[in-house]
Computed example of a mutant assay.
Amino acid sequence: MSEESSVNERKREDGGGGDESAQKECKHVEILLDIDYVDDYIDSCIPATLQQGGEEGRAMRGRGRGRGRGRLDDVEAEMIESDEEVEAIFINHEDVQALSPDAATSSVPISPGEKVRMWTEEILPNFESVIRKKWVHALWKQGIPWKLRQNVWPRAIGNKLNLDHDKYESLAMVVNDRSFFIPGIEIINNDLPRTKLKGKDVDEAQLRVLLCTVSALQPEVGYVQGMSYLGAIFLLFMAPAEAFVCLGNLLSCRFFPSFLRMDAEKIELRWKVFEILLGQELPDLAYHFHTIGFSSDLIITEWWLTIFSKNFPVELSCRVWDCFLLEGESFLFRAALGLCLLLRDRMVGRAMEDCHAVLMRSGESVEAEDFFRAVGDVKASSKFIREMLEA
């Protein structure tokens, strides 16, 4: 059964219900890509506070520079909007220097060694006190040094579930017992040989145990396709027990429970939000998608569940992960929009199958700097995207 069919089936089983606000979010579905209606739809689903001020309010909605969102020890926590937060834009080396406490007056680009020093001596020892600083966010968005992700990512994700090495070892021992039922074990066995990271080998034995232990944590959900890519990325940087803690906590926060449990209402909301944003950012491409019947569910589900690690080379996908762990889900929307912006000329006028192939094979042709430059050109701010998701 396809993902779309599964979602629709779940919705029928639930009676297509939902509270009044949820129904309001989903109205005008049939005209989301009709450009004449995009602004009216946005006005109907964003909070009144964002609509106040006439032209000023509209300028706020369209402004491309919003506040970032952090994912600190509590992965469910909101970052407080304040002057200490960095704007959700991508900046160059010179901007990083200007914001760095030690390089404020330097005109020399920051070397990889200096970045490592700043992380190890200035950021990690003082993580809680500096995490909201602009210069930290600026440096973070340039990409966390490879060997330091094993230290930074766990702190960014947090450990809300209180998982530890002992929990991993006990579950690993249980799942190795063939008499123990592992939810989704057949899908895990099928997915392992198909999980290929672009540029790095995957240790299937370690990945199998990791996926089985995480599936055993939530037997009511079990394993869902896409989780293997998340596990494989974590295993690039940390031992299986640490990867277990990170993956278990990551899957318990934000949008993941909705996708893992096939929550039709929340999944469809994300499809619609993306289509609205695409209509604002790239009206010609949005209109073309609408004309050929290309639906966002064909790409969003896979990109979200794998955080782009199935499509992008490892180096690029890990930088996407860095930004996702800093800003939250809103960055995934901005990344998807940036990718569409970068590939627009290769899709407008093409058939649906061709457009899908261009997006799914984007990792073969997209350069990291071009991609992040395109993301920086996206006008929708992280704050505005969060407002749409939470309206």
Score class of each variant (00 low, 15 high):
residue 62 G to R: 05
residue 62 G to H: 07
residue 63 R to N: 13
residue 64 G to N: 03
residue 64 G to A: 01
residue 65 R to K: 05
residue 66 G to S: 04
residue 66 G to Q: 03
residue 66 G to Y: 00
residue 67 R to S: 11
residue 67 R to A: 10
residue 68 G to P: 01
residue 68 G to N: 01
residue 68 G to E: 03
residue 69 R to E: 05
residue 70 G to V: 04
residue 70 G to L: 08
residue 71 R to Q: 06
residue 71 R to Y: 02
residue 73 D to V: 00
residue 75 V to E: 05
residue 75 V to L: 08
residue 75 V to T: 02
residue 76 E to L: 01
residue 76 E to V: 00
residue 76 E to K: 01
residue 77 A to C: 00
residue 77 A to G: 00
residue 77 A to Y: 02
residue 77 A to L: 00
residue 80 I to F: 08
residue 80 I to V: 10
residue 80 I to R: 08
residue 81 E to N: 00
residue 81 E to W: 07
residue 84 E to W: 03
residue 84 E to M: 13
residue 84 E to N: 05
residue 84 E to C: 07
residue 85 E to T: 01
residue 85 E to A: 02
residue 87 E to F: 07
residue 88 A to Y: 04
residue 89 I to G: 08
residue 89 I to H: 04
residue 90 F to D: 06
residue 90 F to T: 06
residue 91 I to T: 06
residue 91 I to A: 03
residue 92 N to W: 02
residue 92 N to M: 04
residue 93 H to D: 13
residue 94 E to F: 09
residue 94 E to I: 02
residue 94 E to A: 06
residue 94 E to M: 01
residue 95 D to R: 05
residue 96 V to C: 09
residue 97 Q to Y: 02
residue 98 A to P: 03
residue 100 S to F: 06
residue 101 P to Y: 07
residue 103 A to Y: 15
residue 104 A to C: 10
residue 104 A to H: 13
residue 105 T to I: 07
residue 105 T to F: 10
residue 106 S to I: 01
residue 107 S to K: 09
residue 107 S to D: 12
residue 107 S to C: 05
residue 107 S to H: 01
residue 108 V to G: 05
residue 108 V to Y: 09
residue 108 V to E: 15
residue 109 P to M: 04
residue 110 I to L: 15
residue 110 I to D: 04
residue 111 S to A: 11
residue 111 S to K: 10
residue 112 P to S: 04
residue 112 P to R: 11
residue 113 G to P: 09
residue 113 G to E: 10
residue 114 E to G: 00
residue 114 E to L: 14
residue 116 V to Y: 11
residue 117 R to C: 13
residue 118 M to W: 13
residue 118 M to N: 11
residue 118 M to L: 15
residue 118 M to G: 05
residue 119 W to D: 10
residue 120 T to Q: 11
residue 123 I to T: 04
residue 124 L to F: 09
residue 124 L to Y: 14
residue 126 N to G: 04
residue 127 F to S: 12
residue 127 F to R: 09
residue 127 F to Y: 15
residue 128 E to G: 07
residue 129 S to E: 15
residue 130 V to C: 10
residue 130 V to Q: 12
residue 132 R to N: 14
residue 132 R to F: 11
residue 132 R to A: 07
residue 132 R to D: 14
residue 133 K to A: 14
residue 133 K to T: 11
residue 134 K to Q: 14
residue 135 W to T: 04
residue 135 W to G: 05
residue 136 V to H: 11
residue 136 V to M: 10
residue 137 H to D: 03
residue 138 A to C: 15
residue 138 A to M: 09
residue 138 A to E: 13
residue 139 L to V: 03
residue 139 L to H: 05
residue 140 W to D: 10
residue 140 W to F: 15
residue 141 K to E: 11
residue 141 K to R: 15
residue 142 Q to R: 14
residue 142 Q to Y: 14
residue 142 Q to W: 15
residue 143 G to K: 09
residue 144 I to V: 13
residue 144 I to G: 03
residue 144 I to M: 08
residue 147 K to G: 10
residue 148 L to D: 08
residue 148 L to F: 08
residue 149 R to M: 07
residue 149 R to L: 11
residue 150 Q to A: 07
residue 150 Q to C: 14
residue 150 Q to H: 08
residue 151 N to L: 15
residue 152 V to Y: 13
residue 152 V to D: 13
residue 152 V to N: 06
residue 153 W to H: 02
residue 154 P to M: 10
residue 156 A to Q: 13
residue 157 I to K: 01
